[in-house]
């Protein structure tokens, strides 16, 4: 049976109903795609921060090379270190000069002698930062501030909040996504049931003429899959347009420029388009299948 042709004729013959379904699906998949993108971006931001030196320990001028090497080895033995860089006084001066190159006043009178050497450490996971910091705080090679505290800096607040935000975005995205998928499924069950009710006579005729169950059912299933594909394309298209607008506005901010979030990877967008389309057509096909099982016995 030419199920595809029949499915298209069903769509053509109830255009407003079809349009409503596609726009509702489009909105649902716009939100799902947006959550996916947001989650991807937040993950990239997190990865960026994780890749930055997360703990900086300033070393005493008196610290011996052997003492520093022992400290590095001790840290590496924990298995929680991604990378350790030793920054000498001269390198520290270079960094300082680079950071303040537009302000000659701040460059005057600054020499390598007054800048401390340091260790810049990246952890494999943000969770490990506290432990690494506490190891450093017990080391005699690490310098002590005037207030008597060890000079160990780590961006605990930023990374912790970032991690919480990322987790929250994922949870909200997942929860919202599940809800939207459930709504999509229900929408397809209801719409297909309505379509079956509208075409009850036609289905009955088909069966009386000897059509198999599949022949009676397939146009409705295919119709559901078509709605799924169109809805996903519409939703993804809307999200892509919004992302393009947002991306071109945000790319000017140095924060985003440094992280390299925008423009969002085309490979990721293509994978997302494929995944959303496949998922949408599966969900809509499933919704239609449930309706045909229920109403086309």
């Amino acid at each position: 049976m030419k199920s595809l042709k029949v499915a298209f004729s069903h769509i053509r013959r109830s255009p407003y109903q079809s349009l409503l379904v596609v726009t509702m699906l489009g909105f649902a998949f716009f939100l799902i795609s947006s959550f996916a993108i947001l989650s991807f971006i937040s993950q990239q931001v997190l990865v960026f921060f994780e890749s930055q030196p997360q703990v900086i320990a300033y070393l005493k001028d008196s610290a011996e090379e052997t003492e520093i090497k022992a400290l590095i080895a001790k840290l590496e033995d924990t298995g929680k270190i991604e990378e350790i860089n030793y920054v000498s006084k001269e390198e520290a001066l270079g960094i300082y000069r680079e950071a303040n190159k537009d302000n000659p006043l701040l460059l005057e009178m600054v020499t390598a002698d007054i800048l401390p050497a340091s260790l810049e450490i990246s952890a494999t996971r943000i969770d490990h930062l506290k432990e690494i910091a506490s190891i450093l705080e017990e080391e005699s090679a690490v310098s002590v501030s005037e207030g008597g505290r060890k000079e160990v800096d780590f961006a605990e607040d930023i990374t912790e909040s970032l991690k919480k935000w990322t987790l929250a975005i994922r949870r909200v995205g997942l929860g919202g996504g599940v809800l939207l998928v459930f709504q999509t499924l229900l929408l397809m069950v209801v719409v297909t049931s309505m379509k079956i009710a509208l075409r009850k006579d036609e289905v009955e005729i088909l069966k009386l003429l000897g059509a198999s169950s599949w022949q009676a059912r397939s146009p409705f299933l295919i119709e559901g899959v078509i709605y799924g594909i169109w809805g996903a394309l519409l939703g993804f298209g809307g999200m892509y347009l919004a992302l393009s607008q947002l991306g071109s506005a945000l790319i000017g901010f140095s924060f985003f420029a440094d992280i390299g979030v925008f423009p969002v990877s085309q490979d990721f967008l293509l994978i997302l388009l494929g995944a959303v389309t496949l998922f949408s057509s599966l969900i809509c096909g499933l919704g239609s299948y449930i309706a045909t099982r229920r109403y086309l016995k």
Partner: peptide
């Protein structure tokens, strides 16, 4: 809502 041709085509399709 189908023409006579389409009505008859149903049997061919079945």
């Amino acid at each position: 809502d189908r023409t006579i041709r389409e009505n008859i085509e149903i049997s061919f399709d079945i």
